[in-house]
């Protein structure tokens, strides 16, 4: 049986995709629960790797309808595996400067082990399944498409 509040906690109707900076504190507030002693927060930030050259920002786009639906399925599956967990996540779209947060996943559970595990699960699933793409914007304005290094797919 599913946790009765799984789709009803405050903010559950908030979109998974946003165009403005992600408000981490708000996500943490949404999973807070007096019976939960562990909250794990993962933030993915736009980075410039050692071999990436002068990356100024990353432009994120999505197949938005499908992305929202995949996020929703990932949450449902997370709640099946960790009944009672509370999960909040958001992915930012548009041009995100280096150093800013592109995705945040926050999970609370009664004890820390499940919070870490469930948070990791959500992050790995979203990288495998959610149709989002990124294009690096170099200083000077040139752009290049970029796949996830760990997606197992050819980037060319």
């Amino acid at each position: 049986m599913k946790w009765p509040f799984c789709r009803r906690w405050p903010g559950a109707s908030v979109a998974f995709l946003v165009n403005e900076p992600i408000a981490i504190a708000e996500l943490v507030r949404r999973v807070s629960d007096p019976e939960h002693g562990g909250t794990a927060t993962f933030m993915g930030t736009v980075r410039r790797g050692p071999d990436d050259g002068p990356v100024a920002a990353i432009e994120y786009t999505a197949y938005e309808g499908m992305a929202e639906s995949e996020f929703s399925k990932i949450l449902d599956q997370t709640l099946e595996r960790w009944p009672g967990a509370r999960v909040a996540l958001q992915h930012r779209l548009g041009r995100i400067p280096t150093g800013e947060v592109s995705v945040a996943v926050v999970v609370s559970t009664p004890h820390r082990a499940q919070a870490f595990e469930a948070c990791r699960y959500v992050v790995e699933e979203l990288k495998q399944r959610v149709p989002i793409w990124k294009q690096e914007v170099l200083e000077g304005g040139a752009t290049r498409w970029r796949g996830n290094r760990d997606s197992g797919q050819d980037v060319t």
Binding site: M66, H91, V103, L126, K127, P131, I132, W133, N148, S151
Partner: peptide
């Protein structure tokens, strides 16, 4: 129709088939 599909998935009239480049979310 916004669900991951396989090469042998059958299509019906009016379906939306999306080609997805390597995913890069996160």
């Amino acid at each position: 129709n916004q669900e991951h599909a396989l090469a042998d998935t059958k299509l019906r009239d009016g379906d939306e088939m999306a080609l997805l480049p390597p995913l890069a979310g996160g």
